[in-house]
Nucleic acid binder design. Structure first.
Lengths: 359, 359
DNA sequence: CTGTTAGCGCATTCAA
DNA sequence: TTGAATGCGCTAACAG
């Protein structure tokens, strides 16, 4: 055997051995062997105190622990992953983490994952195309993630999920009820109905809807909930104004509504669009809620400080994160991919932007 | 040698070999050896086509490539990392990715990292305490990340960065000029001065300031820029109202200003607080910008749709992300940790919330 | 251009 | 309770 000391370069022995820039800093991380040597045990024993917690005498354990500390020992995750075939990392595919919803979920998932002893590797995509999603998943698989949570709330992206080999644990978030992968999301139909009924019960003859863009399950489901509530109240369903989730689109859509004095209630598919709508209404002098009531969806932190404070539908994003993780863990544990769909019930937050219709 | 086929369990040969749930799905991923065998070459050659791109005849290469495809071969990252000592992953420590700023930077960094062929592993922390930061970094180190970007814009967290062993590449984002680690951030002093001078040049006698919370470098620097601009104009410096970045705190602070008719201009340390201030002003009937001008900082996407559209200081978060990554890459390449500080110059976005002071 | 031989650092049998 | 082998899948020297 070649002994135990760090190998010195055989050729060019004239070059100084110590690195010139960082004196006294060990170039190589300490290995389990180093710890073992220092503690006077075999590397096996070190491994045991690292994992088992058992079958090691208290004395040796402390000796080993000391040695670890002394060497600032960091277990090599690659080596461990290689032999255990478990990377202890999860993959997260997300779209535009700049938005409040996705960002909150990422946060929730990440927290839950770390609590469960998992690392999380993120792959944000620029577009929700099938290809982008598949690429991201490919990246994550390269990294040997044990499972993937995909926050890709668009049809084109959802279909990509179906193409993921069944061997890998997978959860879709906000991908709608139509997906054939395990999913968790808020019950958008219920949420939208909640908002619409609230408005209807306030005496409004009908409720107008500024929706999310086509091809987004959540947009579709919210429109459905809105329509169902209208039907339940036997109220006429005005044509939907299509937005794209942005404040700007809400603003533009509401401008078209603002001129019509019969419009007294508007349900927007998210808070950003509601914010834009508030602005459009304000511009033409229609007061909220005196003349028109507005309701949003999401409950962004700024909601209570808009002019006026926004009535909205609250989603528990953190809970969505936790549930996704639980669902993923279940798959990892069982090795199967059950066709489960978890729908969380949202809540209506009534604030000042909605009020009784003027008779 | 023990042959080449997948081992079958020696004991209990009666149990069916195929997994009951997922038929025809290979239990184990294909290895390089499998590919080699199928292609009729050595595993080394497979490795070569995987990395080198060179020294392989076109024919063998295509044969190997075919075999890979056929087997849906995924290189084992753990094995590769073990031998190359490079994980190809970066760590990201962030605080509250729900906020627009951090979220945008995470996005920017992640994109840049992937373009550079790196994976990114995220660790969000709940509090910006020294301990939380150190824990997160510890987690990331366990994962053998090659470098860490820490978005921890608070003093208590910044000091923790100094404690990180010099062996590991590290970049602080938005940690202020006082940090002794490489950092990148926007030039807050300049940005705040820009906003304040804008207001002053509009004829306002002075500018009030709603600041970020104590202990945040960015809050401090923005206050400094504001004060410097005031001094430059020989304007009196009113007492600072301290907020906590939230819309609520901006609202509360502005309420105290709103009653004072001499207040004609307010510079808020971020857009959320400005939003709250807008609301407070509106409540007491003070018109913006006719009576009071308001300027924010960050340029959130909703800014143009507030009532009124918000004048603000725009930061290029994506660029911050890119620069952080570049700085990190430089460290990884050189092995040194240069004491570099990169300050990006922000821009003033003038919209409707600021106007000439009434004479 | 291609194959052979060694480990990378660790966990998992086995023996002692 | 501990130590000695073996191999995870791959890349890095070497040969040929």
């Amino acid at each position: 055997m070649s002994g135990d000391v760090r190998r010195q370069p055989a050729e060019k022995p004239s070059t100084p051995v110590v690195a010139p820039t960082s004196p006294a800093v060990p170039e190589r991380m300490a290995t389990m062997m180093d710890v073992a040597k220092l503690a006077g045990v075999s590397h096996q024993t070190v491994s045991r105190v690292l994992n088992d917690q058992a079958k090691v005498s208290p004395q040796t354990r402390t000796r080993v622990l000391d040695a670890m500390r002394q060497l600032d020992y960091q277990p090599n995750s690659a080596a461990r992953a290689l032999v255990t075939r478990r990377s202890k990392t999860l993959g997260l595919v997300t779209f535009d983490t700049t938005l409040f919803g996705p960002a909150s979920m990422v946060y929730g998932i990440e927290q839950a994952a770390r609590d469960a002893g998992y690392f999380v590797s993120i792959a944000s995509i620029r577009t929700l195309s099938r290809r982008a999603v598949l690429d991201a998943i490919g990246q994550l698989r390269l990294q040997s993630v044990e499972g993937i949570v995909a926050i890709v709330p668009k049809d084109s992206a959802v279909v990509a999920l179906s193409a993921v080999p069944p061997g890998i644990a997978l959860v879709g978030v906000g991908v709608g009820g139509g997906a054939d992968v395990p999913m968790v999301g808020v019950d958008n139909v219920v949420g939208a109905a909640l908002a619409t009924r609230h408005l209807l019960s306030l005496g409004h003859k009908t409720v107008h809807h500024i929706s999310g863009p086509p091809g987004w399950p959540e947009a579709r489901e919210r429109a459905t909930g809105w329509r169902e509530a209208l039907t339940a109240y036997a109220a006429p369903a005005p044509p939907v104004l299509v937005g794209d989730w942005s404040a700007r689109s809400g603003y533009l859509a509401a401008q078209r509504l603002a001129g019509d004095p019969t419009v007294t209630a508007v349900f927007c598919a998210n808070d950003q669009m509601a914010l834009g709508a508030l602005r459009a209404l304000h511009e033409v002098g229609r007061r909220v809620p005196a003349d028109v009531s507005v309701v949003g969806f999401d409950d962004v932190p700024e909601g209570p400080y808009l002019i006026p404070p926004l009535t909205t539908v609250q989603q528990d994003f953190a809970e969505v994160g936790r549930r996704s993780l639980a669902l993923l863990m279940e798959q990892i544990a069982t090795g199967a991919r059950p066709h489960r769909q978890i729908h969380l019930t949202p809540q209506l937050k009534v604030r000042d932007s909605s009020a009784r219709a003027v008779a």
